[in-house]
Amino acid sequence: MGLNVIVLAKQVPDTRNVGKDAMKADGTVNRAALPAIFNPEDLNALEQALRLKDKYPGTTITILTMGPGRAADIIREGLYRGADNGYLLTDRAFAGSDTLATSYALSCALKKMSKIDLIIAGRQAIDGDTAQVGPQVAEKLGLPQVTYAEEVISAEGGSITIKRRLERGVETVEMPLPGVITVNASAPECRPRNAKLLMKFKHARTITERQGEAEDYIDLTADRPYLNIEEWSVNDIESDMNWLGLSGSPTKVKKIENVVFQAKEAKHLTPADEEIDELMKELIANHTIG
């Protein structure tokens, strides 16, 4: 029995690698200098989807992402690893969305898709670390959720069995389908790109991307429809504009401060024996240790 699986993915700036060149002279982050990557836990989510596809022939995997035009890159990345197709939800109307407005837009797009069995997302994105979008989408669709998933054990007979990783233990739960699961970083890593799929999907493009390219590519999708990455704007989903973007976001950013360390006088030492010996004597004398 094949499943219709949607993977929610996000393109994020690689905040784990904020190097020296990523900081501007005034000490603020130069976002443009950070590489845009497939959110790591969304890759863990994709792997769980791919394992379902391995196990249950006929399963299709669709990637849904919301973001600017260049977010099509992560859809291609997903196709190279075994996803079947992708949707890019992109519109200025979505700009400034907080997690709730994002979840609303995604849920409207999901409602437009044909019969969904399972929605899988990463637990959280590294640019916000909120872990909110998965559960908020589930609520907007009226679907049950299982968060902190580490392994999908089986998906048979209309329900799915999942192992969850909690702070101090593991839990096995059963959820009827359709439903939403979010996957932890502790789940298996995503398989690498497949060379054949890379060849197959290397020219996969959204309509906007095709319009910007040489003429040869424009008609490529006529006989190879799988090369079309579906691009949806706000007009392609049924939504209430008041719930989208900034106006649909209950949370507002009042203030942003760049992190500046408060300097205090540190006593600088070298690893020389006398200095370490002196330090230890001092710490023992003032009862910090010992």
């Binding site: 784990r16 950013v253 760049n258």
Partner: peptide
């Protein structure tokens, strides 16, 4: 903290 801890944001829910 947000953005990998490189900024500190003050968030409000006015309405």
């Amino acid at each position: 903290p947000a953005f990998g801890g490189n900024i500190v944001a003050t968030i409000i829910n006015p309405d």
